[in-house]
């Protein structure tokens, strides 16, 4: 499993692994029920610290993205049902705001942003994104 990791980024490596796996799942490259590499396998493959990978797996499990079955290994979990709409919205609102700040400084207006969003969404679905 290949993840693009930049060790020199300010984003901690475990966070990059978490984000990378989430993206692979969202893109449908990793599918529910699929077996994840072991911590050891992934650490060696990416030449990253095993403790860092273990930490990332822990977070992914807490967030319900993967699940560990004792003695059988770690698997991609089924898609989460939206249990708490309010919490989900809150989490996304922060990200959207960041996009809006950038958009303002790039001189985009309301219509530009809406159009961009629609296009991105179409693009995402075309490429098999879920």
């Amino acid at each position: 499993m290949w993840l693009e990791i930049n060790p020199r980024s300010s984003t901690p490596i475990y966070q990059q692994v978490v984000d990378g796996v989430k993206e692979l799942v969202a893109r449908g490259i990793l599918v529910p029920g699929e077996r994840m590499p072991t911590v050891r396998e992934l650490a060696v493959e990416l030449s990253l610290n095993p403790n860092t990978i273990a930490k990332a797996y822990q977070r992914l499990e807490q967030e319900g993205i993967i699940e560990t079955m004792r003695s059988r290994g770690t698997f991609v979990a089924g898609r989460m049902k939206v249990l708490d709409m309010e919490m989900a919205e809150q989490q996304l609102a922060g990200l959207v705001e960041r996009v809006l700040v950038e958009a303002y400084h790039l001189g985009l207006n309301r219509e530009d942003i809406k159009q961009l969003f629609e296009e991105s969404l179409d693009n995402w679905e075309e490429k098999g994104g879920k």
Binding site: R40, V44, S47, N49
Partner: peptide, 14 residues
């Protein structure tokens, strides 16, 4: 150098 680091990571993981 890469092989060296990988060997060390394998040792720690294993």
């Amino acid at each position: 150098r890469r092989a060296f680091l990988q060997t060390i990571i394998e040792e720690v993981a294993g």
